[in-house]
Structures are given as structure tokens and as C-alpha cells.
Nucleic acid binder design. Structure first.
Length: 577
RNA sequence: GCGCCGGUAGCUCAGUUGGAUAGAGCAUCAGGCUUCGAACCUGAGGGUCGGGGGUUCGAGUCCCUCCCGGCGUGCCA
């Protein structure tokens, strides 16, 4: 709807500019939906922007535009000048009414566009290392990444979801050592930490924890899940692993077990990845060495203090970074650079990284290095998100990663279910903090919970259809009803909202801000629920067959858009609740 | 210290390249069920958009500055 109107205005504008002898490029036509309904369906501020350029008062320009615009090919019922030079445009009711059938016909394709032009796009998200269960922060990222992927696919990108994990390095060693410590402890051999661990200064063991005589890595993983993994090992191997190093079988087993759990968690919230990429493969295939060599060839690598550095100051950043420690071990930065280069080498036209605020510092270095390696850094994007706090009973629930007292995705999902979890996690703009209101999310009465409010709106469309069936009233097809019977203001208002869906999808995708979908759905449900509620003034199914058919058409259109929106968020669209 | 993100109603938050009288949910208060779903709906109160300055026809939105909060600033990931 908006698109058609923009085209018409563009035509009028071109004519005006030509007649004024202005050959400079025409400004982009933008329309907004005014806050005040009296200001029409769309408002255009073009005339005010052109006043200086054309040396004419804005209202005169507006007047000229309106004359040239006419009724915009039947779209408009009125166009008026208002205030300093706004043009208030009112869409002809017939144009809105026609939209109902169009939406029904479009079905699942409504809102689809091709702005992605079939570009191959990768969204990388979650990417948690298998050292423990997913936390709420991971959970937010999981939903954010998945919803972005859904949106981007909807607007014409060819999307791949990817999960990157680190299966080498210190974290996994510590994991193995932690499991071994618990293993020994469970066997009553807690007082004997392995000698190699004692020798590692970076990795000191201490003699007690919480007052108990337990040998445990100082920076080890303290969660109960470690103990459970140790018990499983005792069941399968008894005391047979006492002399195994933590870095061997313990690490491997823990890695596999925890990853299995993470996968199960992700599946439980409706998330599937197309590719799991592991860091180790970069080493195995020589990609790490290759990056060093290629950067060195450009004089972007240097040695100092026994370490190997990335000359990032030379690349315009604020400091240089170590890529290989004096111990000979690479820092996390190096494989990250290699990994991102591989993304582009694998043929992605565009790469979106979803990351938590705690390691955005890293991103500019990766991005710039990938640019130096010959790829367009503009095509490597970051979607950053802040962390999640949980509020219950008016107080923040205390969380600590170190003490493993954080709330896990599993716990939250068990409390509130997949759909509520997803809705609450996507409702806020990514770069803002997200306060998860546990009381509201758990609300068993369901009436205040925005996730249910939207789903309920959808279920109601089926409720009406069930009713129609009982009464023997057939559901209309997209063309078998007379849409001009939808003439109540609240009906036009609903159709206007339905008509805004494609623009909302496009904006949410382009801005990488899926929360707009959640807000849109709340607004649509906020129009629909009252409409359907107020049966005393306008019952859908009545003696008037033609009117019933038209309103059932509206029911189908509303259902279609609600279902589309819910699908973009990965929520189920229930037929009854 | 420096960098990034945030500061909008009692609470949690929207606010579309700068547009007209700043919105929603929750909470509070007052109403409404012989009704296609009352798991709902109607209405009300509630704001110096953190403070100050600037840019212009117009600023919650852009610029400067200060204050507050979160995160980062490692040869940790």
C-alpha cells in the first residue's frame, strides 16, 4: 500500500522538479504514519525539505505536489496541506478493503520481499563453548540470532545458521581437570591432585573448597553438572581412569556430554543450526599458519617481547594485539580472524555475528584483519546485545557465572515454556538490557502475559471459524466476499495495521531488530481482541450473509498476519488455548 | 582515565533517514459477562524524554558538555 503511494508521489515530484528546471537527483520520498488519526493514513514532509532547494514556500510546493498527484490512481480519497507544509494523505476505503483479499491470497508469502536479492548470508550465534549449560545470556542470543535468521530469510536472503565452538585451548583443559577432580573426589581420592597440575602456575590447585578437603582447580567449573559427569564416568569405568590425565578422556567425555545437553536445550526452544564449525579444524587445515603468513606478507605482523603481534595500530585501531603468546600458544584473536576469513572464502556474501556485549571489543580487530586479507569489511556485521537480568518479586535474581549459580535456559524454559521464553527474550531491542520479568512470564492466569495475549488473538480466529461451522456458515475464499462491507472505523483500522506488516518486516530485517515484530504483534492483537470482543456492536456471524462473509474474510486476513508474525518469532500459533 | 551501550509514566520498555498534541504493557483506580472465547473489554490518573547548551521552520531523535548505571579496556575466551 505504502509502496504504491510512494511510487505515485515520486512521479508527481519528478514532474515538479522538471518544470522547475532542477536536474539534481530527486530526494527519496518517505511517508510516515501520523500519530493523530485526523492527519490521515500517511503524512509526507517532502515539501518542507524542498523549500530551500526550490526557493519557494513549503505550502506552495505542497500545493503543487497535490495537484500533480491527483487521486494517485484511485488510491487516495483526499490530500491536504497541513501545518507548515505537511501533506496529509488519506487512502480510499476501497483500497484498504481490497487489501483483505490480497492478504488472504498471499498466505505465507505475505510480507515476503526480495531486498536480500538472494545473497548468501550467514548468521553466527550462540557459539558457546561446551563447558556448561546455556545461561540466560546465551538464551537471549539464541533467540535473537534465530529470529534474525527467520527475518532475513523472509526478505530474500539465503540464510545459514552457524555455531562456532572452541574445542581446543585452555577452557577445555580446565573442564577436563574439573571433571577429573570431581571423579577423584567421588572415589574418595580427593587429596591427590595430579602432579602436572601442581606444576602449572597458571593453573594452581588448592587444598580445600567451601571448607572441604577437596582438590579442585582454582578456576575450575563448579557447577553440579561436573559432578554428574564424573559419576557417569565412575559408572562406566569404575576406578579405571585414575591415572588418565584430565586433558584426555575426561575432557573428551565432558565435552561430548555437555554439548549433547546444549543441543537438547536449543532444540527445546526451537533452534537448529545448519553448520557447526569447530576451531580445531582451522588448526588441522593449516588456516592459522596461513593467516599469519598472509598478514606478515603485508607487514601487519611483528615480534616483540617474545610474542607475535598484530599491527592493528597500523590498520587504524587504537592498539596492537598479541596473536601468539610467548608460550607459543595462539590467543583467541588469531583463530577468530582465520575463522572469519573462511566464512567469506566459503562463499558467504554477508556475515552477521551475534555477540554479547562482553566481547564486542574483539570485533573491530577481526573485522579490520579480514579487510586486510582482501574481503569487504562492510559485509561483516555485528549485532551486539546486552545481558539479561531476571526479576522476581520485585527483586533481581542474583547470578554468578563463577559460582555456577546462574539461571539456565533449561530452568527458565521449564518454568515458562518455549513460547513465552522466546517472546520475552526477543521483546527488547538488542543493544538494551533485558529484564526478564519472571513473575509476568510465569503468570498462570495468562491474561496479562503478552505472549499469550498474541497467541490468544490467533486462537480466537479459529474460535470464530469453529462457531461458523456450527452455524453452517461457510468460510469465504479471497474473492467470494464483498470487502466494501467492512466499513466500520475499527475494521479499516485493522486493515491498515495488516497493511503495515510488510514494511515492519522489511525494517526489522534491515535494521537487524527483530523486536519490532513482537511490538507489531502486540499492537495488532491489541486491535483485534477488542474488536472481536465487542460482539454487541458488530458480530462476525449474523443474519446478514454478505456482511458475515466479509467479516470472516477479515478473520482470515488477521489470522494470516498473526500466524506469519508468530512464525517470524518462532512461536506456535495455536488454534485453541 | 579511555571506549562501547543504556537513562522516556510508579515498574518494564517502544518511539520508523529530525515532523504536528511523546505511546504500550504491568501496577493503581472506576466500570462492564442471558455475548462468535470475560483467558476478555471500556475508561481514568500518571511525563521538566537524566541536567545544561547548541544546530533549524521543527529535537526524545543530530552536535557539544556534564551526571548516573552496565560492559569492556589481559600474552583470559
Amino acid at each position: 500500500m505504502k509502496e504504491d503511494l510512494v511510487k505515485e508521489i515520486g512521479r508527481a515530484l519528478a514532474g515538479l522538479l522538471e518544470e522547475s528546471g532542477d536536474s539534481a537527483p530527486a530526494p527519496e520520498v518517505s511517508l510516515e504514519v501520523p500519530r493523530q488519526p485526523e492527519h490521515g493514513d500517511f503524512a509526507c514532509s517532502l515539501a518542507m525539505g524542498l523549500a530551500k532547494r526550490l526557493g519557494k514556500p513549503p505550502r506552495a510546493i505542497a500545493e503543487d505536489l497535490i495537484t500533480r498527484l491527483g487521486d494517485a490512481g484511485g488510491l487516495l480519497v483526499s490530500a491536504e496541506i497541513a501545518g507548515p507544509g505537511f501533506i496529509n494523505l488519506r487512502i480510499a476505503p476501497a483500497a484498504w478493503q481490497k487489501l483483505v483479499g490480497t492478504i488472504i491470497d498471499a498466505g505465507g508469502e505475505y510480507g515476503r520481499s526480495q531486498i536480500g536479492e538472494g545473497e548468501k548470508l550467514q548468521v553466527e550465534f550462540v557459539s558457546a563453548n561446551p563447558t556448561g549449560p546455556l545461561s540466560t545470556g546465551h538464551g537471549r542470543q539464541a533467540i535473537l540470532g534465530d529470529c534474525l535468521a527467520r527475518l532475513l530469510a523472509k526478505v530474500g536472503f539465503e540464510v545459514t545458521r552457524e555455531y562456532y565452538f572452541n574445542d581446543g585451548g585452555r577452557q577445555m583443559r580446565v573442564l577436563g581437570d574439573s571433571v577429573k577432580a570431581r571423579y577423584l573426589e567421588e572415589l574418595g581420592r580427593a587429596a591427590a591432585p595430579p602432579p602436572e597440575a601442581m606444576a602449572d602456575p597458571e593453573h594452581a590447585w588448592r587444598d580445600e573448597i567451601d571448607g572441604l578437603p577437596v582438590a579442585f582447580p582454582t578456576d575450575g567449573y563448579q557447577g553440579d553438572y561436573i559432578r554428574e559427569i564424573a559419576r557417569e564416568l565412575i559408572e562406566s569405568h569404575s576406578e579405571g581412569l585414575v591415572d588418565e590425565p584430565g586433558d584426555g578422556h575426561f575432557r573428551e567425555f565432558a565435552h561430548k556430554e555437555i554439548f549433547k545437553d546444549i543441543e537438547a536445550t536449543l532444540v527445546s526452544i526451537g533452534i537448529h543450526f545448519d553448520v557447526h564449525f569447530n576451531e580445531k579444524s582451522l588448526y588441522d587445515e593449516g588456516k592459522i599458519d596461513e593467516v599469519i603468513a598472509d598478514l606478515r606478507a603485508q607487514d601487519l605482523i611483528f615480534e616483540s617481547e617474545g610474542a607475535v603481534w598484530l599491527a592493528s595500530i597500523k590498520m587504524g585501531l587504537d592498539r596492537d594485539r598479541v596473536v601468539i603468546k610467548s608460550s607459543g600458544e595462539p590467543t583467541y584473536l588469531l583463530p577468530d580472524i582465520a575463522y572469519h576469513r573462511e566464512k567469506f572464502r566459503r562463499g558467504f556474501d554477508r556475515v552477521v555475528d551475534v555477540q554479547g556485549a562482553d566481547h564486542i571489543e574483539q570485533f573491530p580487530f577481526v573485522r579490520r584483519a579480514v579487510g586486510a586479507l582482501g574481503f569487504d569489511e562492510e559485509r561483516l556485521e555485528l549485532v551486539m546485545h546486552q545481558f539479561v537480568t531476571i526479576t522476581s518479586g520485585g527483586e533481581k535474581v542474583k547470578q554468578s557465572t563463577r559460582r555456577a549459580t546462574f539461571v539456565t535456559v533449561d530452568e527458565l524454559v521449564k518454568d515458562v515454556g518455549k513460547d513465552v521464553f522466546r517472546f520475552f527474550m526477543i521483546e527488547r531491542k538488542p543493544e538494551g538490557h533485558l529484564d526478564f520479568d519472571l513473575d509476568l512470564a510465569k503468570d498462570q492466569n495468562w491474561r496479562k502475559n503478552p505472549a499469550y495475549y498474541v497467541q490468544y488473538a490467533h486462537a480466537r480466529t479459529h474460535g470464530i471459524e469453529r462457531r461458523a461451522q456450527e452455524e453452517g456458515v461457510p468460510m469465504p475464499s479471497s474473492t467470494s466476499f464483498d470487502p466494501t462491507r467492512l466499513e466500520l472505523p475499527e475494521e479499516i483500522e485493522l486493515v491498515r495495521k495488516l497493511g503495515a506488516f510488510p514494511e515492519m518486516v522489511e525494517r526489522a530485517a534491515q535494521e537487524r531488530e527483530p523486536h519490532h515484530v513482537a511490538y507489531y504483534l502486540r499492537e495488532l492483537a491489541g486491535l483485534w481482541n477488542p474488536y472481536i470482543q465487542d460482539g454487541s456492536r458488530h458480530r462476525v456471524i449474523s443474519e446478514d450473509e454478505s456482511l458475515s462473509a466479509a467479516r470472516l474474510g477479515l478473520v482470515l486476513a488477521v489470522r494470516n498476519v498473526l500466524a506469519e508474525g508468530l512464525d517470524l518469532l518462532g512461536l506456535t500459533a495455536p488454534e485453541r488455548m
